Computed example of a mutant assay.
Amino acid sequence: MIVERPSASRGQGPSTADGLDRRRTFSGGAYYDPQWMGFGALRVLNEDRLAPGAGLARCRRANMEVLTYVLSGALAHRDSSGAERIVGAGGLLWLGTGHGMQFHHSNASHAEPVHFLQAWLQPDRVNAEPASGIHEAAPRDGWHLLASPDGDDGSVAIRQDARLYRSELSPGSSVVRSLDTSRRYWLHVATGAAKVDGRDLSAGDGLGLSAESGQLALAGAGTTRVQLLWFDLPA
């Protein structure tokens, strides 16, 4: 089964902070849609833009794997462990909130906006010790593993049988993904345009796949490079 989530149909509730523009793929906050409560272990997928100098409200979460991927600009992060980081474009920040972690995200720049995605995954264990990590690498053609349960290929090790891949494609170039009926998959078009299994997709569009087999063909379309995020999830 394949479900489509067009960008324009995503939720846009009241902003939780001044200078924030947010689009929600799944229900959360003031946005509620019973048809979109998550996709397996993937509970949240927000696209955020923060104006120069703006910040999100301080947040406390428990028992959630928080993956924040920066598309452009620079994101400043602080958390209750004392960690302070600046995450640039192409960087992935992981927070394993465990039994409880307080954190704060803000725009590191007072001159340029920051554009990022935030995904929340249910962990495979509860009340673990809070932890965090960062993965930074320049986008490249083909698939690049950003997060995995065992930290393969230099990825961030997370607490769930899930993997997050990134691919950046030039117009006309293509990649494939093999599908396993025992897994779920979520594709998010982060920037640009793509043709996926005959479908024309643009930035913000998503596809969810479950109980599918074979291979899925993905190609860059339009006139600029496309950036894709692929979530490989437990069924």
Rank of each mutant, 00 (worst) to 15 (best):
A76V: 03
A30W: 07
L228R: 04
A89M: 07
F116H: 13
I158W: 09
G172Y: 12
L164E: 01
A138W: 09
S148G: 13
A89T: 00
H115V: 12
M37H: 12
E168V: 13
D48I: 03
F103D: 11
E212T: 09
R183M: 02
F231Y: 11
F103G: 03
F26L: 00
L20D: 00
V226S: 14
G28Q: 00
G98S: 13
V226F: 02
R23A: 10
R58N: 06
P34R: 13
T97K: 08
D152Q: 15
S15C: 07
S213E: 14
G151M: 04
S27D: 03
L209V: 05
A131N: 11
G206P: 00
R5Y: 14
W186G: 06
S9Q: 09
E129W: 02
R10D: 02
R43G: 07
D161F: 05
R58G: 06
F116P: 06
A108M: 07
S15D: 09
K195V: 15
M37W: 05
G29A: 03
G98W: 08
Q35D: 14
A190D: 06
D48F: 03
F231E: 00
A147S: 08
P130M: 06
G73Y: 08
S106L: 04
E4Y: 12
L207G: 09
E4G: 08
Y69P: 04
G53K: 04
V44M: 10
F26K: 01
P123Y: 12
T25C: 08
R43Y: 03
G100V: 10
V70Q: 06
P123S: 14
L145K: 07
S15G: 09
A41C: 13
A74V: 11
G208L: 13
S80W: 01
I2C: 01
D150T: 15
N107D: 11
H105T: 10
P171L: 09
L56I: 01
G29D: 07
S173Y: 04
G53F: 06
Q227V: 10
A190G: 11
L229T: 00
S132R: 08
A211V: 04
R159E: 15
A62S: 14
W186C: 13
G154M: 10
W120L: 10
H77N: 09
T68K: 01
V70K: 04
R78F: 02
G38P: 14
A147V: 04
G204P: 03
R5G: 12
S148Y: 00
D152P: 00
L164Y: 01
V156N: 04
A62F: 06
R163N: 03
A8N: 02
L216N: 05
A219D: 05
A89Y: 02
N107Y: 07
C59V: 12
G73V: 11
V189Y: 03
G208C: 10
